[in-house]
Amino acid sequence: MLLRRIYQFLMIYLLGVLCLLVIKVAADLSDYVIPGIDALWLSVRDVGWRYVVDVLDTLRVAVIGQVLSIGMALFIGILGRQATWFGSFIKVAAYNVQAYPIVAIAPIIFILLGDGFVSRLLIAAMICYFPLLLSVVGIMSQPIPDVEHFYRQTGRMRWQLEVKIRSFENLSKLTTVIVGSATLAMAGTIVAEFIAASAGIGYSIRIALYQSDLAKILVALFMIGITLSIYQGILEWVGSAVKKVWAR
């Protein structure tokens, strides 16, 4: 699973770089527009290790942000799963908060909270929270009649049991959603760093952009892609392990 994700990413990345090189040669473009192999290699040597550190810093924020948003989405999703007035209110409130684009809110967050860890974390959590919430609400609102009927008839159904049944029956869906949200958390953190932070790979990309250095940006994209592939592979592995343990 993990290996498959890594080689799939490598294939996509190499194809992308190859396409750029074909365009470079076909249109006779300079290294300023599209860097050549030698320029890419020089950038790897110059900034490779620094970018590894930066991307790990970004991943750290993204993981914490993702965990927070999973917790938040589960909490709201469980509260909002019932077809009551309160359930409906929670859902509407959650949807409305998400209606504002994060790039519009981000500057306010940075002004109020500064350009440190908390702002990056908050933006990462906000970006990956909503798709998670939609899925959790969808899963938690959907009864599993075959299983739930027995407990309801015998009067043994409690909300914890209901959540457990619905989570277990939809574990594959939940795993897929959580793996997908890792991308969003990473993207959210990078956006936050790009806009205003002073650390992380997003910040390094911003500096490379100021220096018009596409080679550095390509190196950064590689680091982001490979790190994310490994992280997603690990999440998938954890998901299948949890399912096996639960199924015993």
């Binding site: 300079s30 290294d31 300023y32 527009v33 860097p35 320029a39 220096q211 018009s212 250095d213």
Partner: peptide
């Protein structure tokens, strides 16, 4: 100057 250093015409 960045562009010239990278061969831009």
């Amino acid at each position: 100057i960045h562009a010239l250093a990278k061969g831009s015409p």
